[in-house]
């Protein structure tokens, strides 16, 4: 017998369910009076450095219908490519930028909206720069474990061409599912959960 490694197992995921708003964006879900405002509703202020952008989009199911009960969180670097996180060792991020936000998809048309800034480039493990990107995390009724993906920018063709993550996508046409549409400052990022246009999701 060898030594016991002693590692614990990760707590298994479960769906966020249809009433995720009660816990994560109660004011949006019609439950007011507990929190002043929903956490993650604003990531920029007047002093935030960088180019202001708006990202809108939908999460679309296997029939082509938008989810009206999904919740999206995003996480990104500041304009200089630094994360506002204690694990960021390369320098101090812009104190006027949280780097994180959450937004439910609208109950009417399924659209989400993020007011943010365009992130700077950050390095891959081997030091090569990744292209500017925003990490997306999607939960909803019917999604058993949160889905990770990334938004890349359509006006960063040169950076995208040398991005180590995009380069790992074997079927080249699928890399396009991670590149937003629209143009600065209004980008559009539709996330397709399944089917022909299925977004590339990450185990990372």
């Amino acid at each position: 017998m060898a030594q016991d490694l002693g590692y614990l197992k990760e707590t298994p995921s479960q769906t966020a369910g249809p009433y995720v708003h009660i816990g994560l964006t109660p004011n949006f879900g019609g439950l007011s009076g507990v929190y002043q405002r929903d956490l993650g509703s604003a990531m920029v202020n007047d002093q935030t450095l960088g180019e202001r952008i708006t990202v809108t989009g939908r999460v679309i199911d296997g029939t082509g219908a938008p989810l009206k009960d999904a919740l999206i969180e995003i996480w990104q670097a500041d304009a200089a490519g630094l994360y506002n996180s204690p694990s960021e060792m390369r320098g101090a991020a812009d104190p006027n930028f949280t780097g994180w936000a959450r937004c439910p998809t609208s109950a009417e048309d399924g659209i989400f909206v993020f007011e943010t800034i365009k992130p700077g480039r950050v390095p891959f493990k081997d030091g090569r720069l990744m292209a500017p990107h925003i990490t997306f995390w999607i939960v909803a009724r019917g999604i058993n474990i949160g889905l990770h993906t990334r938004l890349y920018f359509p006006d960063e063709a040169a950076a995208n061409a040398e991005d180590p993550l995009l380069a790992r996508i074997e079927h080249r046409h699928r890399a396009e599912t991670l590149v937003a549409g629209g143009q600065a400052p209004n980008y559009v990022f539709d996330i397709h959960l399944q089917g022909e246009k299925e977004t590339v999701f990450l185990d990372i």
């Binding site: 296997g62 029939t63 989810l67 019917g142 399944q194 299925e198």
Partner: peptide, 13 residues
């Protein structure tokens, strides 16, 4: 989950 599950493999890194 039937219509909300990706059918293609995840990209692992």
């Amino acid at each position: 989950s039937v219509l909300r599950s990706p059918q293609k493999a995840l990209l692992s890194l």
